[in-house]
């Protein structure tokens, strides 16, 4: 079932600047976890604020459960949208206890029903013993959980999370990510995350929407976004990428690293750029090899090598960290492309 639909939503903060969100159209299914990924200033947070009702779109419609929330001649304020929000800074009310924070959105319930719901939701996030503490007495991870509990307490149809893990330490971040996903799946809550962290987007989401300059470049499963980026921007923003020039021939796409299939059916004679991921490239050291190792980046579980090809193009190859090749080693590089993705030369 379709829960949320954005139709040609545009938001401009100042007349003399490009729109923050530009003609955004997408739908989100019930129970789905969606992530907006993009560089800072790409419009992802603005999109979230438009859905929540903190901003009014200049044009287009925001539809939740077939009901127009914002659109021509119609405006539903945030308090009537039934959307939970987890803020980047958590926005916990400092003058209220954990239990009062969590119960803040339950003012329509009776006293005992509210207490029961607060207890239940605190149990879900594992904070039942912290009910009477104040937010400042909690750790970052605990505050994060209170913010989630508060947003979930009124059982919203949709919950929006704005960079929720960015204030946490790296190891805590991975742990909280897993826990938040468990809670969201457990409650069947539809969720939209905003992040600039690609790993976070890939591990959490059913679908990832990549935004750039207010436009949706691609909205697909994480695997599709990684292996079949729709645009050159997505290819470059998601994962490490090299591009190698090639020419389309009858046999396939001919490049310096060999001939690749042409599944996209490009016209013969066309000049293209072939996308190469570091895990697509392997090499063997050969004294007569045409490539040279320019640099090695030690990454712990892997070594990333930068190779210079005879044409001067640089490509990267990731290898296990067990063997180490010195800089200057001559190598023969090979590309094993499972997914061939090409972009037009000019793109």
């Amino acid at each position: 079932m379709e829960l949320l639909a954005l139709e040609q939503v545009t938001k401009r903060y100042a007349a003399d600047r490009p729109p923050a969100v530009d003609g955004l159209t997408l739908t989100v299914q019930q129970g789905e976890i969606l992530t907006f990924l993009g560089p800072s200033g790409c419009g992802k947070t603005t999109t979230l604020r438009l859905i929540a009702g903190f901003e009014v779109p200049d044009s287009g419609r925001v539809v939740i459960r077939s009901e127009t929330m914002a659109g021509p001649g119609r405006w539903v304020p945030p308090e009537e949208r039934g959307i939970g929000v987890v803020f980047q800074d958590y926005a916990l009310f400092p003058h209220l206890t954990v239990a009062e924070n969590v119960g803040f959105g339950l003012h329509h319930l009776g006293r005992s029903a509210r207490r029961e719901r607060v207890r239940q939701i605190l149990e879900l996030v594992g904070l039942e013993t912290f009910a009477s503490r104040y937010p400042h007495a909690l750790s970052g991870g605990q505050q994060q959980r209170v913010a989630l509990a508060r947003a979930l307490a009124p059982a919203p149809a949709l919950i929006l999370l704005d960079e929720p893990f960015s204030n946490l330490d790296a190891d805590l971040r991975a742990q909280m990510r897993e826990e938040v996903e468990r809670i969201l799946r457990h409650t069947g809550t539809t969720a939209i995350f905003v992040t600039h962290d690609q790993e976070e987007a890939f591990t959490l989401a059913d679908r990832v929407g990549v935004l750039n300059q207010g436009r949706l470049e691609q909205l697909d499963t994480p695997e599709t976004v990684y292996h079949h980026p729709a645009t050159r921007f997505v290819a470059e923003f998601v994962g490490a990428t090299d591009f190698l020039p090639g020419a389309v021939t009858a046999e396939g796409i001919a490049t310096e690293l060999g001939v690749f299939p042409n599944p996209e059916g490009r016209d013969i004679g066309e000049r293209v750029k072939v996308m190469l991921r570091p895990d697509d490239i392997t090499f063997v050291p050969r004294p007569d090899g045409q490539g040279v190792i320019v640099r090695r980046y030690f990454r712990g579980s892997e070594n990333l090598y930068c190779l210079r090809l005879p044409s001067g193009h640089l490509v990267h190859s990731s290898q296990g960290s067990a063997t180490v090749y010195a800089r200057g080693t001559r190598v023969r590089a090979e590309a094993n492309l499972i997914h061939v993705v090409t972009f037009s030369q000019g793109a």
């Binding site: 929540a52 009702g53 903190f54 304020p77 945030p78 308090e79 009537e80 949208r81 039934g82 959307i83 939970g84 929000v85 803020f87 980047q88 800074d89 926005a91 009310f93 400092p94 003058h95 803040f104 959105g105 003012h107 329509h108 508060r150 947003a151 009124p154």
Partner: peptide, 27 residues
């Protein structure tokens, strides 16, 4: 007072005046 505090109250179902009484004024 960070604006997200008032926005949080709105998203939790409080009207602007109720938000003012329950969040803004105490803080």
């Amino acid at each position: 007072l960070h604006p997200s505090l008032e926005e949080a109250a709105r998203s939790l179902g409080r009207r602007p005046l109720a938000t003012f009484w329950s969040v803004t004024l105490p803080l």
